[in-house]
């Protein structure tokens, strides 16, 4: 074993436990060489000294504020991890966050907004009392609808007990001009019934149809149900 080989093994010798680093068969020759070779022994001693000096090199103790900062960071990160651990936890966190944001947003304007609304209500109610009675209905107001249908004013003569419906054409003066039986009504279409019906219509008063408030002619459906019940449908 020459010095070059020994020097390459000296690092392993530093680790005390040479198993796996120096083959067992070479460990005894290595120690014998070191005992006899001054140069290699000095080299090994220098390596020992380096290791010793390294270990003796002072290190600063960890500052207390650093430990405190690390603990705070750990707590913050643990809380953050808990927030994202499950979907429900994440959802709860988001809802809390939104609720807090809305609270923070609304809190500064809540009082001014409530005060403003209350002031507006009070002022509006005070002002509106002055406008009462300005708009009123008149008994002779003409309806301003675009078009109205004729309507029956009074029935002076009844027809019969039979239920019958008839479409009546009323002119602009409210007089009956013509009539006809609608499809499906007036099954008792006899001459006797027609005579009674014509007499009834002759003595019935109608309100004429109107267009833009002006009387005009139009059709109206009159339904005789019984002696006392009459339906009028325009």
């Amino acid at each position: 074993m020459d010095c070059q080989n020994v020097k390459s093994m000296l690092s392993a010798l530093q680790d005390r436990d040479m198993s796996g680093l120096v083959p067992e068969s070479e460990q005894l020759p290595l120690r014998r060489h070191l005992a006899g070779c001054r140069d290699c022994s000095l080299h090994a001693g220098q390596l020992d000294l380096v290791r010793h000096a390294l270990r003796a090199r002072p290190v600063r103790p960890m500052p207390a504020h650093l430990a405190f900062s690390l603990r705070a960071m750990a707590s913050r990160e643990a809380a953050r991890r808990r927030r994202y651990a499950t979907f429900n936890a994440w959802l709860r966190h988001r809802l809390d966050h939104i609720s807090l944001s809305i609270n923070n947003l609304m809190r500064p304007i809540a009082l001014p907004a409530a005060g403003g609304l209350a002031s507006a209500v009070i002022l509006f109610s005070m002002v509106m009392t002055n406008f009462q009675g300005i708009v009123r209905d008149h008994h002779n107001d003409v309806p301003l609808a675009i078009a109205t249908n004729p309507s029956m004013k009074a029935l002076l003569l009844d027809v019969s007990d039979a239920e019958i419906a008839v479409d009546v054409f009323v002119d602009e003066n409210g007089r009956v001009i013509d009539y006809s039986f609608p499809e499906g009504f007036g099954t008792d279409n006899t001459s006797e019934m027609r005579r009674k019906l014509e007499n009834s219509l002759l003595f019935t008063e109608f309100n004429p149809a109107t267009t833009f408030g002006q009387p005009t002619s139009g059709w109206v459906r009159v339904k005789f149900k019984s002696r006392s019940q009459i339906d009028v449908k325009g």
């Binding site: 290190v59 960890m62 650093l66 430990a67 690390l70 603990r71 750990a74 707590s75 990160e77 643990a78 809380a79 953050r80 991890r81 808990r82 927030r83 651990a85």
Partner: peptide, 20 residues
Amino acid sequence: SGCETAYAALLERFQAPVFH
């Protein structure tokens, strides 16, 4: 899972060795 005790144990074990 974000257990505070586990974080404290990790710090207790490693903060000084890592600093050095």
